[in-house]
Simulated scan of single mutants.
Amino acid sequence: MDQRLIKIQAAINELTEKIGIVPPVIGYGEAILNGLYIEAEGKSWVTYRLMCSGERGGEDLVTIALNEDDLLYAILKEVTFHPAITFAAKQAPRNINQRRVHFEKQEELMGSVKSDWKD
Rank of each mutant, 00 (worst) to 15 (best):
T63S: 12
I21N: 03
F87C: 04
R56K: 06
R94F: 14
G42L: 10
I38E: 09
V25H: 01
D69I: 07
L5T: 04
A92N: 10
A89R: 06
G27N: 08
I6T: 13
V101C: 06
M51C: 08
T47G: 07
I85A: 09
G57A: 09
Q98N: 06
A11L: 12
T63E: 09
A65I: 04
P24W: 06
Q91V: 10
M1A: 11
K105H: 10
I8H: 05
E14Q: 14
Q91N: 11
G57M: 07
E41N: 04
V101Y: 10
E14P: 00
S44I: 07
Y48R: 00
W45R: 02
A84D: 11
P23R: 01
I64C: 08
L50M: 05
K90S: 13
W45A: 14
I85Y: 09
G20D: 13
V22A: 15
D119H: 07
K90C: 09
L15G: 04
L72S: 07
K118S: 15
N97K: 01
A74D: 15
C52F: 04
L109H: 02
A74M: 03
S44T: 12
L61M: 13
V101R: 00
L71V: 02
Y28G: 03
V62Y: 08
A31R: 05
A88P: 03
W45N: 10
L50T: 04
R49Y: 10
Y48F: 15
A92W: 01
E59D: 13
A40H: 05
R94T: 13
R4A: 12
L71I: 01
Q3K: 01
N34A: 15
P23E: 12
D116E: 15
S53W: 05
K77W: 04
Y37A: 05
Q106W: 01
E78I: 05
V46S: 06
A89K: 03
A31G: 11
K77R: 07
E108T: 10
K43Q: 08
E55R: 00
Q98G: 04
A92P: 08
I85K: 02
R56F: 15
A74P: 03
G27P: 06
G111I: 06
L66F: 13
E104C: 06
L76Q: 08
N95C: 09
L61N: 05
N95F: 13
I64P: 00
P93D: 14
V101H: 05
E108M: 13
D69Y: 02
N97S: 14
I75E: 08
G111W: 07
K105D: 06
